[in-house]
Amino acid sequence: MNSPEIACGVNVYCSGPDAPDLPAALDDMAGVGYSHIALSPFSKDDLDVAALKKALADSGVRPIPMSGQAPDANVSSPDEAVRAKGLDLLKSSIDLAHELGADQLNGVVYALFGDHQEPFSAERIAESARLVGQAADYAKGAGIRMTFEVVNRYETSMLNTAVQAIDYVRQSGSDNLFVHLDSYHMGIEEADIPAAVRSALPVLGYLELGQSGRGSLLTGSVDIRGAVQAAKDAGYTGRFGLEAFTRQLLPAGGANGLAIWRQTYTDPHALAAEAVDIVRSVYAGQ
């Protein structure tokens, strides 16, 4: 079986899409074997999009942008006007992804990141799914596959498991909405990571590899190789992603928001190479 495409999270190497060392990071990613870079959220007003497009084109690494929601633009809000702005925000993210030449959009698109004070009602989840489904249909018209990331209970109280995500896709009514599972979050929320991967397979659009300590995939409590093996055995042919964070490479606000309090690794190249080796060796049957 051919090895699937693999994306590297931008923060594995640098602070974000506007980092001055991004072109060097892209070149190293390409050399290691990455086909894509998963970008952290950014505003078109705060970034030289033309420069980013040039750096991507020069490296041959393709972008996977990330979308999200804001306090005043949130599809899970009880306020109808705020929900409408949330849909508009998703559509603007899709437009930007199209401008960058992306064919996939990731992100926590269904609720405000960090909203975990109380459970969401079934009605608010259904309305969020309906609106995100509309965004996914809009993305389909732009040739973009829309995925949403399932995160842990400390980052949202809406969707924490593969089972919940599968039902959310069903409620969306869209055939262009897919699930993004992350082994870091699954290590917190899932009783059986391989079973979660298998259950989501029909709608699994992105499988991200992240270790419990947010650093090297080779050291931590999550069986990364087992997650990849489960995906292969289930017939998964979609993209994998690598995600890791270390405090010295992140902006202070981003590090604090993600609770990255320490240096988890020092060599981005080595960490990135480990992930490619794991995926390729599993798919090669080694």
Rank of each mutant, 00 (worst) to 15 (best):
H180I: 08
H180V: 07
D182H: 10
S183P: 04
S183R: 05
S183E: 02
Y184V: 13
H185E: 03
H185T: 08
M186K: 14
M186Q: 11
G187I: 11
I188H: 05
E189H: 11
E189M: 15
E190T: 10
A191I: 12
A191D: 12
A191W: 11
A191F: 14
A191G: 15
D192C: 15
P194V: 12
P194A: 13
P194I: 09
P194T: 14
A195C: 06
A195G: 10
A195V: 04
A196S: 15
A196D: 03
A196I: 06
V197G: 12
V197D: 04
R198A: 05
S199R: 13
S199G: 09
S199Y: 01
L201Q: 12
P202M: 08
P202R: 10
V203D: 10
L204C: 04
G205V: 06
G205Q: 09
Y206R: 05
Y206Q: 05
L207G: 14
L207H: 10
L207V: 11
E208A: 14
E208L: 08
E208Q: 15
L209V: 09
L209Q: 07
G210S: 07
G210I: 12
G210L: 10
Q211M: 04
Q211F: 01
Q211E: 07
S212G: 09
S212F: 02
S212P: 04
S212L: 02
G213L: 12
G213P: 03
G213E: 07
S216F: 02
S216N: 04
L217I: 10
L217H: 00
L217R: 02
L218Q: 08
T219Q: 06
T219R: 14
G220F: 02
S221C: 01
S221P: 00
S221I: 06
V222Q: 00
V222S: 00
D223Y: 04
D223L: 03
D223M: 05
D223P: 09
